[in-house]
Amino acid sequence: MEPFTVRHVTLHGHELSYLDSGKGEVLLFIHGILGSHRNWSHLIDRLDDNHRVLVPDLFGHGHSAKPMGDYSLGGHAATLRDLLDRLGIDRVTLVGHSLGGGIAMEFYYLFPERVERLVLVASGGLGREVNPILRSATLPGAEYVLPVIASRWVRGRAESAGRLLSKVGWKPGSDITAIWQGFTSLGDGESRRAFLATTRSVIDPGGQSVSAHDYLPDACPVPTLIVWGSRDRMIPAWHAISAQQAMSQCRVELFQGAGHFPHLDEPDRFADVVRDFVASTRGDQCSDAAGA
């Protein structure tokens, strides 16, 4: 059962789902590829006592519609802007994981006057390197292979193997659990099409094809927190250091031993770090500059 009520809004003829809880400064959480609001929902009651926590499912993911259309970073950023407009929210702190980090940076680049702060969690868009599994989704013919490996038969065999391993003491970590939950969402053609369109918009066979380093140095400085797991096998943690060197007002928190989902590995620490970051930074410099 969902611990919070899933709400729905229609944007450009398609239904977008989201969670909305609390009052105060708005934290907008953006999940990654194959993710959904469930990757963040465990943080809501850790943060909504003095923040308004907004957690959407991107189009193509979770409970949201999976239409034909634009699944680029800019397309997702524009959808989030439209959601904020519909809810009457002017400014937010963006918290983006993986693909969501890339969307957060694109949103900041396109709509800087609406961003208080950036929190980038194992973010895409900060370097070329990415796990070969994601690169394989961009190869010709992936659309024919994916239905086979995501079929009910294959998923059933994998789940049976997992149950057998659990009987001898194996426990899947946060990375495996989250990735598996995402993988199981690919059982229908619309979800697979949206996944391939999203992946191919930011990755090619050689790695990540979109780099924030091309435009962030010219954007209005904004307080930025980068969180990474030291054992991230999807995107290397050293991307955090290169980003810190390229961005002013940037703080890095490395979670030792965590993987690609540090907010799942250490949710209490993650919530504390975000809360401290918001409380200790002033995020209206871009508005000041625009009004000068």
Results as ranks from 00 to 15, higher is better:
138 T>E: 00
219 A>P: 06
245 Q>M: 15
254 L>T: 13
48 D>C: 15
84 L>K: 04
110 L>C: 09
170 W>Y: 15
186 L>R: 08
13 G>M: 04
234 M>I: 15
85 D>N: 00
50 N>F: 08
51 H>W: 02
141 G>S: 09
254 L>W: 14
106 E>P: 01
92 V>D: 04
85 D>W: 04
47 L>S: 07
59 F>V: 11
145 V>C: 00
159 E>H: 11
233 R>D: 12
20 D>E: 08
171 K>W: 03
208 Q>F: 12
17 S>C: 15
198 T>W: 08
280 S>V: 03
118 L>Y: 03
270 F>K: 08
290 A>M: 05
105 M>A: 07
47 L>A: 03
23 K>G: 10
290 A>T: 10
270 F>E: 01
135 R>H: 03
225 L>A: 05
126 L>R: 03
235 I>L: 04
255 F>H: 07
116 E>L: 15
16 L>H: 12
194 A>S: 04
151 S>F: 02
100 G>W: 02
145 V>T: 10
25 E>P: 14
247 M>N: 09
224 T>M: 02
189 G>F: 10
212 A>Y: 06
136 S>Q: 11
56 P>L: 10
221 P>L: 13
115 V>Y: 06
171 K>H: 14
211 S>V: 02
117 R>W: 09
213 H>I: 01
39 N>R: 00
133 I>W: 08
169 G>C: 07
230 S>L: 01
241 I>G: 01
287 S>E: 05
283 G>K: 01
158 A>D: 02
276 D>L: 13
129 E>I: 13
60 G>V: 14
167 K>V: 08
226 I>V: 13
43 L>M: 07
72 S>T: 15
44 I>S: 02
232 D>Q: 05
216 L>I: 15
22 G>L: 04
256 Q>H: 14
132 P>E: 08
50 N>P: 06
33 I>R: 05
275 R>Q: 13
90 D>F: 11
137 A>E: 01
85 D>V: 13
